[in-house]
Design a protein around this nucleic acid. Structure first.
Length: 298
DNA sequence: GCCGAGAGCCGTCACAGCCG
DNA sequence: CGGCTGTGACGGCTCTCGGC
């Protein structure tokens, strides 16, 4: 091909392909500077190592400096420089999350690629209850459950609208008795979505409501104190399982969302790069013509 | 209208890696 | 080291579309 760039690292970030793990992924060549019409000027090209989904590689968005030089036969040859093979291999030792990949891509990239939001809303909600709140659920007459918060202001911010609970089912936070004696502590988040935790009725008095930072937004974990009977243990483990499933459900949703966003981002990049490639080819053609024309006239 | 194929989404499980 | 998180894999469900 006329004026083609011989990319010696087509499937590997390094120009010495054999020294790289086989599953090293695609290299997305991000041309950050369109070469000017100066024939012998080395062209700085930014290359973004892009791991594929299935591969065991890591460190997407690692930028390496690549030089494109003429090889003496009119071909432009890419020669990688900066990162040593060993170091790169070390960097590539773990697959990053889609969020990491995309964020690194976008930070290494010109503006235009949106970062995956760091779940700001969720974090905001968690922040408001992040520290262990010395609050207790207590049953009183008529199944009214009240949480005495050390800092009511924290509890009433974003994540949890209201923390005083009644059994009426109308309040922002309600506790409904289950037939089997289980109590569901239900509350409404700022966005209107419902969250709940199950609490065996007999244990309600002993429950401490706390909000570990690891929980999804607005989820309050009730930690029983003084569980003794096997039945309570079973209920506790069932509760834990439910919580785990719920969190994993949410995590899977988020993961899929990030994955979609990541794929979209890649598709956008492909389109941009195809366009840039076209432009470069055109430019190369015109330069060649110019050069030939000049040679003929001399 | 019925049926099968294919695509897309979801929940769950398993597992690797991270972090306190 | 144990708990948590992110993600691949898998199976089930639903929807759409084309062929009959």
């Amino acid at each position: 091909m006329d004026g083609s760039i011989d990319d010696k690292s087509e499937d590997s970030p390094s120009s010495s392909g054999s020294s790289q793990p086989q599953n090293l992924s695609t290299v997305v060549h991000t041309i950050t500077a369109v070469p000017t019409a100066i024939p012998n000027q080395p062209v700085q090209v930014q290359s973004v190592i892009q791991p594929t989904q299935q591969s065991v590689i890591q460190a997407a968005g690692q930028i390496q400096t690549v030089q494109v030089e003429e090889d003496g036969e009119g071909h432009l040859v890419r020669t990688d420089t900066d990162i040593g093979i060993e170091k790169r291999r070390e960097i590539l030792s773990r697959r990053p999350s889609y969020r990491k990949i995309l964020n690194e891509l976008s930070s290494a990239e010109a503006p235009g690629i949106a970062k995956i939001e760091e779940d700001k809303e969720e974090e905001a909600a968690i922040t408001s209850i992040q520290t262990t709140i010395p609050s207790y659920v207590q049953t009183s007459a008529g199944q009214t459950i009240q949480i005495a918060a050390a800092n009511q202001n924290e509890l009433t911010t974003q994540g949890l609208q209201t923390i005083t609970m009644t059994n009426a089912g109308q309040g922002a936070v309600t506790a409904a008795a289950m037939p089997a004696g289980t109590t569901i502590v239900q509350y409404t988040q700022g966005d209107g979505s419902q969250q709940f935790v199950t609490v065996p009725a007999g244990e309600v008095q002993a429950y401490q409501i706390r909000a570990p930072s690891s929980l999804p937004a607005g989820v309050v974990m009730a930690t029983p104190t003084g569980i003794t009977s096997p039945q309570q243990l079973a209920e506790e483990s069932a509760r834990k399982r439910e919580l785990r499933l719920m969190k994993n459900r949410e995590a899977a949703r988020e993961c899929r969302r990030r994955k979609k966003e990541y794929v979209k981002c890649l598709e956008t990049r492909v389109a941009v790069l195809e366009q840039q490639n076209k432009t470069l080819i055109e430019e190369l053609k015109s330069l060649k013509e110019l050069y030939c024309h000049k040679a003929e006239t001399e």
